[in-house]
Design a protein around this nucleic acid. Structure first.
Length: 898
RNA sequence: GGGCGCUUAGCUCAGUUGGCAGAGCGCCACCCUUACAAGGUGGAUGUCGUAGGUUCGACCCCUACAGCGCCCACCA
């Protein structure tokens, strides 16, 4: 039996480990012919990480879909894993060794990496245990780490192919350099932030000694030491006289040419731009166009070098003021004005990103982007986004894609599988992952070769994740079974997806786009997933980002400890609407916990009936609708609608709506009305057959809710006498029936019942009649047989005493409750003073009159009668008639009260 | 400079083919009624961001604008 109160801490863990132990989370991959499959590849959390709300959100959604599809009979695989998170992990362990008085450099590559692996071994399981605690039904037998053999094989294979296909190249380029991390980072890892800086107007004297000068505006005077030219717009007449001449770089005292380039904006600054290809991406481009050399004055450690003369050794950013002072003293600073602009910061280390020239590995993105663009184009694209508006962003980004710098000057990661020859300086890259590591240069045969010291961007192995987890490049059963067959240039007419990618919208470019490009490339044009469902970012209840410094972090484990994983899951699902934020309000969580408590207690009630009646099994009421009463048929119709809506909403990736529908049905129909009605008919003949409906509905509710709240539903399910404990997760998910379940009159009868009960309850409360006092009434109706049918229910639910049907009420003060079918006259003497009833009637009259006026206004409008749907007009007329009658009754009652 | 999202009750949010505005929490009143006080019953609360337009009818569709948030971008 269920304990009296819902206490998730008593059972969640047990339920989970039993389910995991049962093997039900494991995918088959020996799928029966014709059995559909479903795959979600879990976004691998950082192995160093601890669970945060973002994880909890993706778990809630992905597990819901996994369980739903599993129950629908799919061979379902939710494949978990963890990411080595190159930078984050390396930094963490670096700090650790530094606290021990040593350093990464002192340890050396091998010893340091050993330390990282030790760290991983010790703490790497934390995050996966935490993901388990949320109820995740992933297939742990297939769990993968991005540095496992499977993953590194995929990395080496892909690198080999891309290199030999000419899509990976090495070259000296200007890249974003993080001096904090001492590595290059990709464009995506740079965060722009507004800064309040200054615009320095500098004098560049003409080299001809004429004393004439150009004024150049710059925000970074410290980079002048690496200037190689000054550029002006070819159409700019102001600078005509400088064309073809040379100017002298201030402080550096070097002669540089004045060049013309249409990139220069005449309107901006002074119209003259200093060209520093070594420290600015645009200047780099201009430098290339004009075949200018590149000078470097800022080193990789962020300090100025010998080119800067007396400033050598200073941190570039710190030197700015000093350089400006020197310029002033030399009379070369024309003016300094305030200037606000955006500056790139390293997302990870927070330092200012320095564009620097260095030798790096790049991936050519344009050819790959074309597949990804095509995949999402057109009316029935292979690749679809939910919410759909992300498609536009997708196009935007892919159309403007730049080559991807994939090398990182780190140690923790996939070391680049390329070897440099010390003799001929050529590069040797194996042809495939199967090839053993080269021992001699493929070009000159020298044995003096060494492997490239850089590692690949973490996102490189992530980009291969959907195929590496399935065993690619091997031709595995998993790959064969679960990888979609749809090509990027195929049309997709139906909504079915063999694979779903569900992740945060913040990594659409970092991850999703790269997966589509890489996997499609290696899988002969087959895309890694057909549906992309992007969820919003979790914020606090005020919509602010959660951060430790703000102190507004809500720890999912604190929440689950207090309220259970199911409550948290439901809350996150319910709030995961269409917007870009999920503002987590703990008040909402309380509400959803209360909902589970409600379900718990409703189940206890049902279980009590089941045990009282010695029920061990039930007959499906949907197969004997004719033998049921109107109450049961009404409930089953409502239930069927709920089943339909839940399935539909999940199909269109609106789990929030699916849950909300279920919530409404369970609380407001099943608990508030149906269970109360069952109590009334318990002792009767109809009661017996109602138990089938009761059992069936409860079981259906548990199944519908199970994907979203797996623990509590499984716990309750195990109490059903006919159920196999622990097996709810593999039961058939309810499908809506096409049967005509109920007649219009059934629904009308329930509506009539609710109306008279609610009316009477209102009368009781407003007149302050305690529930202990039954209400005696005189009832007028034209439909006596209906009353006969409803009387037992109404009497019980509204707590009526004696009801005289169609008999004249005595004179004297009386209250009045009017519905479409029934008019109740309730003698008031001895009960209350009449003022309460008077004001109640006045209120009621006001309400009905508003309705009448509304109907009249509509129907008086010939355009409405003519153009609105005929059903609507007819309905309006009906409503008007009924309300007019009601109004007359109420007004008369009020008059009688004086 | 482009693009996107959001703006609905005091707070957090729903509102799916346009047809009299909803939930949770909070608030007021009454009730420990035999599943449930994490509950029950009844109640109060909204110029649906602003201004126009389309329509018999607009929270919903169109156009402008405003506020907030995010993304992208080579204006030094």
């Amino acid at each position: 039996m269920l304990e009296p109160t819902y206490s998730p801490e008593n059972f969640e863990e047990k339920i989970y480990s039993a389910a995991e132990g049962s093997g039900a989370f494991r995918a088959d991959a020996r799928t029966k012919p014709g059995q559909p499959t479903f795959l979600i590849t879990m976004p691998p959390p950082n192995v160093t990480g601890v669970l945060h709300m973002g994880h909890a959100l993706f778990v809630s959604i992905q597990d819901t879909y996994t369980r739903w599809k599993r129950m629908l009979g799919y061979d379902t695989l939710w494949l978990p894993g963890t990411d080595h998170a190159g930078i984050a992990t390396q930094v963490m362990v670096e700090r650790q060794v530094e606290s021990e008085g040593t350093s990464r450099a002192k340890l050396g590559r091998e010893a340091f990496l050993k330390r990282v692996w030790e760290w991983k071994k010790e703490f790497g399981g934390t995050i996966t245990d935490q993901i388990r605690a949320l109820g995740s039904s992933c297939d742990w037998s297939r769990e993968l780490f991005t540095l496992d053999t499977k993953s590194s094989t995929a990395v080496r294979e892909s690198f080999a192919r891309l290199y030999h296909d000419g899509l990976i190249y090495r070259g000296e380029r200007i890249v974003n350099w993080s001096s904090g991390l001492q590595t290059a980072i990709s464009d995506l890892e740079v965060e722009l932030k507004p800064v309040q800086g200054a615009f320095y107007h500098l004098k560049y004297m003409l080299a001809d000694g004429s004393g004439d000068f150009l004024t150049v505006a710059t925000t970074r005077p410290e980079t002048i030491f690496a200037d190689v030219a000054v550029a002006v717009n070819p159409d700019d007449d102001r600078f005509k006289k400088f064309k073809g001449k040379e100017v002298i770089v201030p402080l550096a005292n070097r002669k540089v040419p004045v060049i013309e380039d249409s990139y220069v904006d005449k309107e901006f600054g002074t119209g003259a731009l200093k060209i520093t290809p070594g420290h600015d991406a645009n200047d780099w481009q201009i430098g290339r166009r004009h075949k200018l050399k590149t000078l470097t004055t800022i080193n990789k450690d962020g300090k100025l070098n010998e080119l800067a003369g007396s400033f050598q050794g200073m941190i570039a950013a710190h030197s700015r003021k000093k350089v400006a002072e020197k310029l002033t003293s030399e009379g070369l600073l024309v003016k300094e004005e305030k200037h606000n602009y955006e500056l790139g910061y390293c997302q990870r280390s927070g330092v200012v990103v320095e564009p620097l020239v260095s030798m790096q590995w790049f991936m050519k993105m344009k050819p790959m982007a074309e597949m990804a663009l095509k995949a999402a184009s057109g009316d029935d694209p292979a690749l679809r986004f939910y919410p759909e508006y992300w498609r536009k962003t997708w196009f935007e980004w892919l159309n403007n894609i730049q080559d991807w710098c994939v090398s990182r000057q780190l140690w923790w990661g996939h070391q680049i599988p390329a070897w440099h020859c010390e003799k001929c300086k050529e590069i040797t890259v194996p042809k495939s992952a199967n090839e053993i590591e080269p021992t001699k240069c493929a070009h000159c045969g020298s044995a003096m070769i060494h492997q490239d010291g850089d590692v690949l961007d973490t996102w490189y192995s992530s980009a291969l994740w959907p195929i590496s987890t399935l065993g690619w490049p091997e031709k595995t059963q998993d790959l064969e079974t679960f990888y979609p067959r749809l090509r990027f240039d195929d049309l997709r007419k139906n909504k079915e997806a063999k694979a779903l990618m569900e992740t945060g919208s913040d990594i659409l470019f970092f991850w999703v786009a790269r997966m589509v490009m890489m996997c499609t490339y290696f899988m002969e044009g087959r895309i890694p997933f057909e549906d992309v469902f992007l969820h919003a970012m979790v914020r606090d209840e005020k919509g602010q980002k959660m951060s430790k410094t703000k102190g507004n972090v809500i720890d999912p484990l604190d929440v689950t400890a207090k309220s259970g994983a199911d409550s948290l899951r439901l809350t996150l699902l319910a709030l995961s609407g269409q917007g870009r934020n999920v503002n987590l309000d703990l008040k909402r969580l309380e509400g959803y916990k209360a909902f589970l408590n409600k379900l718990w207690n409703a189940s206890r009630f049902a279980l009590m009936q089941i045990s009282e009646q010695d029920i061990t099994s039930y007959k499906n009421p949907m197969e004997k609708l004719d033998s049921l009463d109107f109450v049961d048929r009404w409930l089953l119709a409502e239930l069927n609608e709920t089943v339909k809506k839940v399935n539909d909403d999940l199909t269109i990736y609106r789990p929030d709506s699916a849950f909300n529908t279920l919530y409404q049905f369970v609380w407001y129909e099943f608990c508030d009305w149906y269970l109360e009605l069952v109590k009334v008919k318990k002792g009767t003949l109809e009661g017996k057959s109602s138990f089938d409906t009761l059992c069936y509905t409860l079981e259906t509710i548990l199944k519908l809710l199970h994907p979203m709240a797996p623990m509590v539903t499984e716990r309750i399910y195990s109490e059903l006498p006919w159920a196999q404990a622990g097996k709810l997760l593999v039961q058939k998910f309810p499908k809506a029936s096409d049967k005509k379940i109920t007649s219009a009159s059934d629904l009308e009868e329930v509506r009539a019942l609710k109306a008279v009960v609610e009316g009477t309850r209102n009368f009781r409360t407003e007149n302050k009649i305690t529930p202990k006092n039954p209400i005696n009434a005189f009832l007028q109706t034209e439909n006596e047989s209906l009353w006969k049918k409803l009387a037992p229910f109404v009497t019980s639910l509204a707590r009526l005493g004696t009801v005289a049907v169609n008999k004249a009420a005595p004179g004297g003060a009386s209250g009045k409750v009017a519905t479409n079918e029934f008019t109740l006259t309730i003698p008031l003497e001895g009960l209350v003073d009449t003022s309460a009833e008077k004001s109640r009637l006045q209120n009621e009259i006001k309400r009905v009159r508003t309705d009448v006026e509304f109907s009249l206004k509509r129907l008086d409008n010939p355009a409405f009668v003519e153009k609105a749907k005929p059903e609507l007009v007819a309905k309006e007329r009906d409503t008007l008639t009924q309300n007019k009658e009601k109004l007359a009754v109420l007004e008369e009652a009020l008059k009688k009260l004086g």
